[in-house]
Nucleic acid binder design. Sequence first.
DNA 1: CAGAGTGAGTTCTGGTTTGGAACCCGATGA
DNA 2: TCATCGGGTTCCAAACCAGAACTCACTCTG
Lengths: 179, 179
Amino acid sequence: MTGAATGENETVAANVDDTKGNGSQRNARSGRRGERVREASTIERTLALVGDRWTILVLRAALRGIRRFNDFCSDLGIARPILAARLRKLVDAGLMTKDLYQEHPPRYEYKLSPAGIDLSPAVVALVRWGEQHLSNGLRSTVLVHAPCGTELEQGFWCEACSTTFGPTAIRGVSPDGHR
Amino acid sequence: MTGAATGENETVAANVDDTKGNGSQRNARSGRRGERVREASTIERTLALVGDRWTILVLRAALRGIRRFNDFCSDLGIARPILAARLRKLVDAGLMTKDLYQEHPPRYEYKLSPAGIDLSPAVVALVRWGEQHLSNGLRSTVLVHAPCGTELEQGFWCEACSTTFGPTAIRGVSPDGHR
DNA sequence: CAGAGTGAGTTCTGGTTTGGAACCCGATGA
DNA sequence: TCATCGGGTTCCAAACCAGAACTCACTCTG
């Protein structure tokens, strides 16, 4: 009853299957707040990392070339303790590196690691969504393909079919089904 | 890794220009917590909306076809008050709709609106990043192109050049031409 | 018809996280 | 020597989050 009721032809992207039906997951957590026993799924862990108001902004600032503590601070308007905590978390998670760029008063720069750069599709997707849906008529920035200046599209690409497609054509499968 | 579909390979994504140098920047906020005076930029508003641990998970559940309060609740393991607050926020923001599906005890279903579906590239990007960087060897879900079953790539696409490209080839420009 | 069950929330109550100010520390540099 | 800068940390109040329990309006079972 739950699912099918609406069957109709909405634009829906609603059949991204999650491959496990629902057999196992949902199990116990301890009584204590914050330390759940069930193993968090991958996305839950992803969001535990980047799912807050600042982390993505820090990443975006880093993508724009900002590297120093104070520059992040004044560019984002973020409170210093929060920034320190976010940078530490990102460095610990391997998304950024902290390099000494000057010894005597030890000074560091924060740069994106490859894993951090890999997150840029997500950052770009959020930026673009905001520009499309939240800008009140005046878009502040348009992201374009640098070589030609055309506004970029973001989409999914199937190498086998050599085609792009939208969210409705996505399915989730389990990799360990037979392997 | 990321770039299978991207022609060039690259190191740094650090020169996405942000078009404003810093002309108008970072100005005042009031003394009160939470009500800043400066007009938040688009991404800041985007993140104020979806930038927390649960909203993206709620959206992902909705993409998977979940529609009812209790189903979200048990699928995600989210506390009921938080879920109620998130759904209300998403409905208010126009990302989801709340439809009556039964009168007598009034019962509602929550569905993604087109604006919510538009966020799926971001959700997918986060899921994929997590699968690539956070799964400890065992990936729980692989997203594939439904018609052919090939694992999908996500990338940027330039219609003018008919080419895909990676994050390094992105530039930000001001929409009003000058600059 | 009483009682159990269901779906969709809200209230209550603590623990956790944020955000802002202020402070610390080690070099410069005037 | 004192001020400044870059990079943090400490302290504290306000906001947010999570869980349990409760409400409300039905419907179903015996």
